[in-house]
């Protein structure tokens, strides 16, 4: 409709101003309908091989919030510890570089009410012109005492590449990019969250890596009010 208007009506300076004003107002309106969270999400990730085909992964991460509010409004600073996660996953190699894994996570929340989550995933590794690309399909089921169970279906694409040279060698920096789509069902409600995570990594060696960056999550994508989360991340990956 707007394109039709452009074709039929000569664009004058006042029309342009009006359109810019409407555009700015629509952005302001969209932002006013969004919330944000700023926090930290450090994690430690330890893996070990049990034998040629089986392995275990332990992960711990904890969240803190430093600011929250509505987009465009004054921030409400509210430093708060949210939760600590502890998880264990058992994996089995199903191809040269592909794995299936099953796991359990306990989330210890600030209010003392623990959540329990069961996770199933398949990770498929592919190589495109020397670039590693991992596809991860994950399902999880979350249970807690006072609430409906939550079911999620997730897909994540992740890749990393060396900043110097063709492969990530010891004592080199690298970039890791991930993009994840999280479908969430709880009590008859559905929501979609999209996550984008650019990280700068440093490989101490192949079994010991540190990553730092931002995890941006936009939730309730198909709904009127979006939630925007910005998590500062420090990940430590260790293979024993």
């Amino acid at each position: 409709m707007s394109q039709l208007l452009f074709r039929e009506t000569p664009t004058t300076l006042s029309t342009k101003k009006l359109l810019i004003l409407l555009f700015a107002l629509s952005i302001r309106s969209a932002l006013a309908q969004s919330t944000y969270l700023i926090g930290t999400l450090p994690s430690v990730n330890i893996s070990t091989n049990l034998n040629e085909n089986y392995g275990l992964n332990f992960k711990s991460e904890f969240r803190q919030i430093f600011a929250a509010g509505f987009m465009g409004d004054e921030p409400i600073f509210d430093h708060r510890y949210i939760h600590t996660d502890l998880s264990i996953m058992a994996s089995r190699k199903v191809g040269t570089e592909n794995k299936v894994a099953f796991g359990y996570l306990i989330r210890m929340r600030e209010d003392g009410e623990n959540l329990h989550r069961l996770t199933q995933q398949i990770a498929l590794m592919s190589h495109i012109n020397g670039l590693r690309l991992a596809h991860r399909i994950r399902t999880d089921e979350t249970f807690h005492a006072n609430g409906e169970p939550r079911f999620r279906l997730r897909y994540r694409a992740a890749s990393d590449f060396a900043l110097n040279g063709a492969t990530i060698d010891p004592r080199e920096f690298y970039i890791k990019l991930t993009n994840e789509y999280v479908n969430d069902w709880q009590g008859g409600n559905y929501s979609l969250e999209v996550r984008v995570t650019p990280l700068l990594g440093y490989a101490i060696n192949d079994a010991n890596k540190l990553e730092i960056g931002l995890d941006y999550r936009i939730g309730s994508v198909l709904k009127d009010i979006n939630t925007n989360s910005f998590w500062a991340m420090i990940n430590w990956y260790l293979k024993l």
């Binding site: 992964n57 590794m125 992740a158 890791k176 192949d206």
Partner: peptide
Amino acid sequence: ELYEVTFNSAGEVINVSTIVSRNTDNLEY
């Protein structure tokens, strides 16, 4: 496993070596 296999010009195998796969934990978890 991943292997690197070297052949001569006639297609006969000269060498076979196993490639140690790089750690993929940071892409999986």
